[in-house]
Nucleic acid binder design. Sequence first.
DNA 1: CGGAAACTTGAAACCTTTCAAGAGTCGTGG
DNA 2: CCACGACTCTTGAAAGGTTTCAAGTTTCCG
Lengths: 249, 249
Amino acid sequence: MLRHPASLYLKNQPVSKYNQVSCANCGLDNICLPRGLSQAEINDISQVVKAKKTLQRGEFIYHEGDNFRGILAIKSGSAKLVASDQHGNEHILNILLPGELLGFDGLSDEKHTCAAIALETTSFCVLPADSMDELFQNLPGLTRELFRHTGEKMSEDKNQLILSKRPAEERLAYFLISLSERLKRRGFSSSEFKLSLTRQEIGNHLGLALETVSRLLKKFQDDNLIVVQNRFITITDQTALKKLLQVTE
Amino acid sequence: MLRHPASLYLKNQPVSKYNQVSCANCGLDNICLPRGLSQAEINDISQVVKAKKTLQRGEFIYHEGDNFRGILAIKSGSAKLVASDQHGNEHILNILLPGELLGFDGLSDEKHTCAAIALETTSFCVLPADSMDELFQNLPGLTRELFRHTGEKMSEDKNQLILSKRPAEERLAYFLISLSERLKRRGFSSSEFKLSLTRQEIGNHLGLALETVSRLLKKFQDDNLIVVQNRFITITDQTALKKLLQVTE
DNA sequence: CGGAAACTTGAAACCTTTCAAGAGTCGTGG
DNA sequence: CCACGACTCTTGAAAGGTTTCAAGTTTCCG
């Protein structure tokens, strides 16, 4: 039984048009795939983009090893990209917010190398893989756009790689600021938001023990940078928080 | 004055055909871009792939901020991908070996977000950006192939991200094994090779102090896994070295 | 051969984790 | 509507891995 997903971020939640399945009418068209395409091109891809599905927290968008079905776009909610290593440990590689694309991990060999799991009630659209070759030929603009998105993903990965060598405080600060800015770009409040992750998950994502995450969040609060109420975060001093990233070592 | 680059890896160095600039005749065609393309398609891209250039250690293949000129392929030698963060620190993101592609960091916004620097005498080819749109339309096979390569790059980044959360010993072991396997795939010896990086650079790449790298290399030698002679590494017990990656934590 | 750069080695300092215990939060069922 | 149990989060103290600092040695190249 599908029901209307609850509002997940506190402020400025854009009103989604849940009954329509057209890129032309989607409120996310400026940040999702169609960004940079002409109206005609958007109409073209609208015809192959499949209707969204809705999942609950913990449900899989795709599993590791699944066949690549296409590039997906988060319409509402959020998700995590999880890979498991040879020890059987799981690593949260990325967090996906509304308007962000995923599925690129299946691009190289038709199999997904990690899993995508909903962090809350989440809906998404699909640009099916089997129509991609045809689209490449007819819509070079879309090809470029897909490459652009892919390049952006790689850029993010690069940032995370650099970040992974920095001290814990900086990693957490970057995580909060990155979430804040991405939410802002997508029309949500940049200063108040709910983490859809547990301390455990944040720690896993950043390579920290959950206790370290807890201690640092408290420290940020003691330093008057943020207010923490369970999973609700209010950034009270974005400037000072950003400064943590710019301290010369 | 171009001269024949010295042999850089100890064994089984493939004889490159330095005077020809055709993908059809290149010894790297099974691991480079043409992999997976038909003979006709290879002939097509041969016509746009530009002649290789040769650089010495320390010379830039491209700088951070440079305009994206296209996808490049290392023909011989090796290179490092370097990004600098807001502190002015440099981070070695990747090492490129013969047959490997680079330049993907310029894909998203036409500017390179990191620099590529030769680690030794190195030559490379270029698939120029300005011919890419046309190629996309005429050679869907190439488009898929490029996406496949891009996906592989992302897969590698993913592995490095997972690795960055593991202890130092595992990081270094993975680094050596990864180099070994990539060299093998490209026709070089997998058991004997020369690091074209300093301890400093290895440490930077793996997020370790150079002293830690030095200590661990010694430890691996004491454990009879490898023999270290300056920058020459001989892997004497690949199985045991790999086991370091599979120890349950 | 001489000097700069790269590398090794030891000891102390430091950041982060691990272990352990207790408190808070949330949803379900009585 | 409150109570219970499971999960999540907080907090302290000790342990551990890695870095930093500081020499000293080796290698490389002009």
